[in-house]
Amino acid sequence: MNALEFRETGQGKVGGPLLLLLALTAGCTSTTVDEFRQGDTGIESHESVVILGRRQAGNRETSSDFVECVGDRLAQGMDGLSVVPEQEFLDAMFPWFEPRTAPLQPEHLGRLMVEEQVALTMRDFGVRYIIWVDGFTETLNRVGSISCTVAPGGAGCFGYGSWEDDASFNAEIWDVENYNGVGQISTDATGQSFMPAIVIPIPLIARVEANACQRLGDQLKSFVIGG
């Protein structure tokens, strides 16, 4: 009911352009990607990569959905890479890649590959590169409020909410053949989401994590394929 009154008093003239502006600005995500190459890369058709999430930090961890998303991106297209699913790799390698036992430096791979079972499993998967992804998405600057009312004549919401999402991820690429780190790619994506509610809430969501995944995946693919 309040929403109808809002439009009748003429404020709708302001509300229209405001909504249009919101629709245009929402979903705008700014993404930056940084690449640091330490060595040559390249991959044969029989070789594969595995993407693993770092989960050593205390109060947060890299989401397995994000890791899966990056993996799907790497596997896409004509030049798609063969990607070993994270959980399949972790289970087959158990207990060597658990949060407490996983190697933290590429040099530690050499020590790990001395274990016959580890070397055999790695060879069975054909893993040439291990990509460690570390990061998270956080929501900042949440402002506004939306209230909803249910009355015998109907129901509706009125208000406005806005928040900013910031996704920050770093990928470290290890060469399993040479036991060294060949590079790092980091991505940082930020975006403002809006939710105006005039009778019904209209979510205008910035796809921050999806954009970070897409840009990181594309960059990783071209990095691994080589140069």
Partner: peptide
């Protein structure tokens, strides 16, 4: 379950 996996990995190694 993550804690149990952690136990298994620590115990085994």
């Amino acid at each position: 379950i993550v804690a149990l996996r952690d136990l298994a990995s620590t115990f085994a190694l």
